[in-house]
């Protein structure tokens, strides 16, 4: 009976899993491996079929100035977006969790960007950044600043892209902090009050450490998003001017579908996959150590 039961368990388990497994393998595992394989081949044309070229794609990638530019941009994008959006998210969560007048309305405002498509949002932000008639310049003019071509200047364009990403993500991250804050026992705050601790001390010494697992979770999401969130570029800059705002995934798209060099795009994708793998490994290492203060 017992062995028949386990055999049946085996069969049922795999049968239930099969439909999802087929799709997962076809669109996640197979393409990840195929990407690596394709990076060793040249892009085929009608007259010249694709052939094995070893590391040539990687060599031209290392000599490709745009690749380095894009990688650098992506790092700045991550550095600019992640800490600020997490800090704002935490601030929002603390505010919305407290006794704030019009709390529901405020929470809704913070969260709204999360459910709006980036592509639509970029349309509106485009107006903010438009020289002279745009909102940014109109407000600037009130204070006597000269008009500025925000998206046309290589010095400011990446900052503009970062601002949108922060605005889009902060409310989303707030939700996770809010959920975590609601699980904290209220006795903690009462005890701190009795001890005469200020709100800031309480936050720094008690709340923030207790929120560490949430911060870690949000951090990982934010890092992944800094490689994934490129939709706004299609509307605002198309990576320009002079690739000053291009990001890795956008460059992959361009290589594959504007320049039709699929195999070079695969090589670039390998770099992206490597980055994601590093994040995944980092996550496991940190989770192993467990930054729990419980």
């Amino acid at each position: 009976m017992s062995s028949a039961h386990t055999t049946r368990n085996q069969v049922y388990g795999w049968l239930l899993l099969t439909p999802a497994a087929i799709l997962l393998i076809t669109f996640t595992h197979y393409p990840a491996i195929a990407t690596l394989a394709q990076s060793f081949f040249s892009t085929g044309t009608v007259s010249r079929p694709s052939k094995f070229i070893g590391l040539d794609n990687y060599r031209s990638m290392l000599e490709d100035e745009v690749f380095w530019k894009v990688l650098e941009n992506n790092i700045w994008y991550a550095v600019g977006t992640i800490p600020i959006s997490i800090a704002i998210a935490l601030l929002m969560a603390v505010w919305v969790n407290g006794k704030l007048p019009l709390r529901g309305l405020v929470r809704m405002s913070y969260f709204t960007p999360t459910i709006l498509p980036m592509i639509a949002v970029a349309n509106i932000w485009l107006f903010f950044y438009t020289p002279e008639i745009g909102l940014l310049d109109q407000v600037g003019a009130l204070f006597g600043f000269a008009s500025h071509n925000w998206l046309g200047d290589t010095d400011t364009v990446l900052g503009c892209i970062i601002a949108i990403a922060i605005w889009k993500e902060a409310g989303f991250f707030m939700i996770f902090y809010l959920a975590a804050l609601q699980t904290l026992p209220p006795e903690l705050e009462e005890a701190a009050k009795l001890e005469g601790a200020s709100r800031w001390t309480f936050f720094r010494r008690v709340t923030f450490p207790l929120l560490m697992p949430t911060t870690l979770f949000v951090l990982i999401n934010a890092v992944i998003n800094s490689f994934k969130l490129v939709d706004q570029l299609f509307i605002l800059t198309k990576g320009g001017p002079d690739n000053a705002s291009s990001l890795l995934l956008y460059y992959i798209y361009e290589a594959a579908f504007s320049f039709f060099d699929q195999n070079y795009a695969s090589t670039l994708t390998v770099v992206l996959l490597l980055m994601l793998a590093v994040i995944a490994i980092g996550q496991f290492v940190i989770l192993d150590k467990r930054i729990h203060y419980r």
Binding site: T28, S266, T269
Partner: peptide, 8 residues
């Protein structure tokens, strides 16, 4: 999946 646009 959006990372693997080329192969997909």
């Amino acid at each position: 999946p959006e990372v693997l646009i080329v192969e997909n």
